[in-house]
Amino acid sequence: MSKLLLAGTAGFLVGILLILLGGYRQGNVPAVVNAAFSFVVAVVPLLVEGVVWLRSGQFVCSGLEISFWLAAVGCLHSYGMLGPYDTIWWWDHLTHTMSGALVAALVYSALIVSLPYAGITGLSTTMIGISTVFLTFVVGLLWELVELVAREAGERYDVEPVLVYYGWRDTALDLVFDVVGALVVVAFDIRILVPVAERFPRVTTTLFLGSSVVVLVGAVLLALIVLHQST
């Protein structure tokens, strides 16, 4: 299984690099930026695994699974910037379902570990699932607002935005498929990060709470900015 994950991760990373090269040759700045960002994000867990192993001789665990998922989502998203987002109607739905599932898997695992560590007990699996779907939706909303603000900034300063905004109907569909991905994670009880989070409960809880605050506050602030610009 680990060999398959390693091969898959390597394949997606090579694909991202090829997309980056193709975007560069085409002068497609959004594709280049998105591919470069996707590659870095997918490699970070592998680097963390390597550093921990060199220092302690142990593996953090789940780093390969996370990198595989990040590389797969990043590759599909980056490739979409070369044309499929405009020519294949379901491509955007696929990438949002996968990215929504990834976010939900991280949130789900963090909730399972953070709540007991913070002394919060008695919550049912259903409540944890609802919280996971809600937070995934907020993360998706934040992303959509960033796309909108990026478009506005690009038009104002005559700069090609690295994120493309396709309108309110597309935004609504993106959020729907983000939620679909989250529902898949909750329904199949995907606990991709639980083994890691259980080893570092304090770090997990701190990162989860901090990230939640940043996401919620960021979504509210960007929503206010968008409302102000539309009036």
Rank of each mutant, 00 (worst) to 15 (best):
L76D: 04
G8V: 03
T136I: 05
L135E: 05
V44Y: 09
R191C: 10
Y108F: 14
T231W: 11
W91I: 01
R156H: 10
V52A: 14
V180T: 08
W69M: 15
G83M: 01
L46N: 06
I19P: 00
G83A: 04
W69I: 14
H93N: 10
G210I: 05
Q26Y: 05
L13K: 02
A219D: 08
L18H: 02
R156D: 09
L163S: 02
D178K: 10
Y157S: 13
E65D: 13
I192K: 07
V14W: 05
I66G: 09
V146Q: 08
E155G: 07
H96C: 06
M98C: 13
L222V: 00
I128K: 13
A101R: 05
S78I: 01
V184P: 02
L20V: 01
Y24V: 05
V215D: 03
L227F: 10
A31N: 00
I225Y: 13
G122L: 03
T97E: 10
I192T: 12
A72T: 10
V220D: 05
G50Y: 11
S212C: 07
A31S: 03
G22Q: 03
S56V: 10
A187L: 13
V185I: 14
W143F: 14
L4W: 13
L94Q: 05
A150F: 07
L173S: 13
P161T: 01
H77Y: 15
I128H: 08
F39H: 01
T206E: 15
V196R: 14
V43Y: 13
V33T: 04
L216G: 02
S99K: 04
L76T: 00
E144C: 04
S78T: 00
V32R: 02
F68E: 07
V149R: 12
G11K: 00
I190M: 12
G74W: 01
S211A: 14
V43R: 07
I225H: 12
F59Q: 11
L209P: 02
S56N: 12
V138W: 06
F68M: 13
V226G: 03
I192R: 09
R199S: 13
V184N: 06
T231F: 12
V103D: 09
D170Q: 08
F39V: 01
I130R: 09
N28I: 00
V213K: 03
Y24E: 05
S99I: 12
S67Q: 06
E49I: 04
A105H: 07
G22S: 04
I19G: 00
L123V: 01
A71Y: 04
V180Y: 09
M127G: 00
E147N: 02
F200W: 15
V159Y: 08
D92R: 04
Y79E: 03
I19W: 03
G218A: 01
T231P: 06
A219M: 09
V14E: 08
S99V: 15
W143T: 07
V29T: 14
T206Q: 15
G57F: 10
Y85G: 03
